[in-house]
């Protein structure tokens, strides 16, 4: 069994060790699969396995164009060549697209309780039908309606600063993804595909942004391999 970490744009043999794992490549034409010996326990979602998976890719991403594979992918030893040949053109096209690029991630947090209170004070979520005698089913639906209206209000409130933050940061990006209110406390999460050499410029833009939006808390991470911008499903 082999554990698959990613697909790279080099047919030359590569070998390195990372946290006790021997990492090597199996080539097909001008691309290769980045693998190590694998077994079931390596696919368990533990902190150690997750960090090793990330470190393996960090060890190669600065040298090669890389398509990172999702965590926990095992292959039979004889299946690698088939995988690469069946998906060769798709892999090649994607590698050309990601060459020299990295992913930066920005998350923004707000005071969820405060924002919820603003929504409740600024809107009347009640319904006159709530005063009518009703059965439990009706009351349940009324409660669901209130919840839905609150969620809609919060999403709308999050959208305004999210749009502004994303507009600011996406200027420096080749591609970008915006997520509004992915969780109650996180009103914004943006992913940005940028040229590796511009990572410093992006960090500077982020610092300016943080100075402007002082009521929010921000998290910048990266550069990462392009996990969010590689949406291939392969067989």
């Amino acid at each position: 069994m082999l554990y698959l970490y990613g697909i790279i744009d080099s047919p030359e043999p590569i070998y390195y060790t990372c946290s006790g794992r021997n990492i090597y490549t199996l080539a097909y034409n001008d691309i290769s699969a980045l693998v190590s010996r694998g077994d079931g326990p390596m696919t368990r979602v533990t902190g150690e396995n997750v960090i090793i998976h990330g470190e393996v890719l960090n060890g190669i991403v600065e040298k090669q164009a890389l398509l990172p594979v999702r965590f926990g992918t095992l292959l039979g030893g004889g299946d690698v060549e088939g995988l690469l040949s069946r998906n060769y053109h798709q892999f090649l096209a994607s590698l050309n697209e990601v060459r020299g690029m990295v992913e930066m991630s920005v998350r923004a947090l707000w005071n969820a309780a405060e924002e919820e209170e603003k929504c409740r004070q600024g809107n009347d979520f009640s319904d006159p039908r709530e005063d009518l005698p009703g059965n439990p089913g009706t009351l349940f639906l009324m409660q669901k309606r209130r919840q839905l209206l609150l969620e809609r209000c919060l999403k709308s409130a999050a959208g305004i600063p999210a749009d502004e933050i994303h507009g600011w940061l996406s200027r420096a990006a080749v591609k970008h993804i915006k997520r509004v209110l992915p969780s109650p406390a996180m009103f914004f999460h943006g992913s940005y595909m940028i040229n590796r050499e511009r990572a410093g410029d992006f960090a500077a833009e982020f610092s300016s942004l943080r100075d402007k939006f002082t009521r929010y808390k921000f998290l910048l991470s990266g550069p990462w391999p392009l996990y969010s911008f590689v949406s291939l499903n392969c067989r």
């Binding site: 698959l4 990613g6 697909i7 979602v45 997750v50 998976h53 990330g54 398509l67 990172p68 594979v69 999702r70 965590f71 926990g72 992918t73 292959l75 995988l83 991630s105 990462w224 996990y227 969010s228 590689v230 291939l232 499903n233 392969c234 067989r235």
Partner: peptide, 10 residues
């Protein structure tokens, strides 16, 4: 990133 994104081999 690695649990939810990246190339999927199915």
């Amino acid at each position: 990133l690695i649990l939810d994104k990246g190339v999927v081999i199915s």
